[in-house]
C-alpha cells in the first residue's frame, strides 16, 4: 500500500464503512419484519404450534435433523416432512411413536421419546405449520 494511504485513513474506512453497513442491515431488518407475515405462516401460529416448537427444542431434534435446511445432516429434512408423509399428521405421529427403544441393528435410529398423544399432536402440528412457511420454493423436491 502506498505511503499516502495512512493508518488513520484505514481506520476511518473501517469505522465509516462498518457504521454504514450496520445501518443498512438494520433498515433491511426493519423491512424484513414488515414483509415477514406474507411468508412466515404466522396466521396459523397457534398455541399448539408453539407447544410443538418447544417440544422440538427440548428434545434437541435439530441435533440430527435439518429444519428448512438448518441443523444437523444426520437425518432427513423435516421442513417438508408433513408433505412427504402425504399431508398426514397421523403418519408423522405413527413414525415417531413406533421407534424401537434399542434402535435398529446397524442402522441410524431415532430415539424413542415416549411422547404422550397430546405431545405428538403438538409436534405434528408444528411440523405442519413449518411445511406451510413460504421458503421461496425450497427444498427443490419432496425428498428434502
Amino acid at each position: 500500500m502506498s505511503q499516502t494511504f495512512t493508518k488513520a485513513m484505514a481506520r476511518n474506512v473501517f469505522y465509516g464503512g462498518s457504521l454504514f453497513f450496520i445501518l443498512l442491515f438494520l433498515s433491511l431488518t426493519y423491512d424484513t419484519h414488515s414483509e415477514m407475515p406474507k411468508q412466515d405462516n404466522s396466521a396459523n401460529l397457534t398455541e399448539k404450534v408453539a407447544k410443538g416448537k418447544r417440544l422440538w427444542e427440548e428434545n434437541n431434534c435439530i441435533g440430527c435433523h435439518t429444519l428448512l435446511g438448518e441443523g444437523a445432516y444426520f437425518a432427513p429434512e423435516l421442513g417438508n416432512v408433513y408433505k412427504r408423509f402425504g399431508n398426514s399428521k397421523q403418519a408423522i405421529e405413527a413414525f415417531i411413536s413406533s421407534r424401537p427403544r434399542e434402535g435398529i441393528k446397524g442402522r441410524r435410529s431415532m430415539p424413542q421419546f415416549d411422547f404422550t398423544a397430546e405431545e405428538l399432536d403438538a409436534i405434528s402440528e408444528f411440523l405442519k405449520y413449518v411445511s406451510e412457511i413460504d421458503a421461496s420454493g425450497w427444498p427443490p423436491n419432496i425428498q428434502g
Binding site: 435439530i62 446397524g106 441410524r108 430415539p111
Partner: peptide
C-alpha cells in the same frame, strides 16, 4: 455404523 453407542450416546448428544 448407525447403531454405534445407541441409545447411550445418540448422535444428537
Amino acid at each position: 455404523m448407525g447403531d454405534f453407542l445407541f441409545p447411550e450416546i445418540p448422535f444428537n448428544v
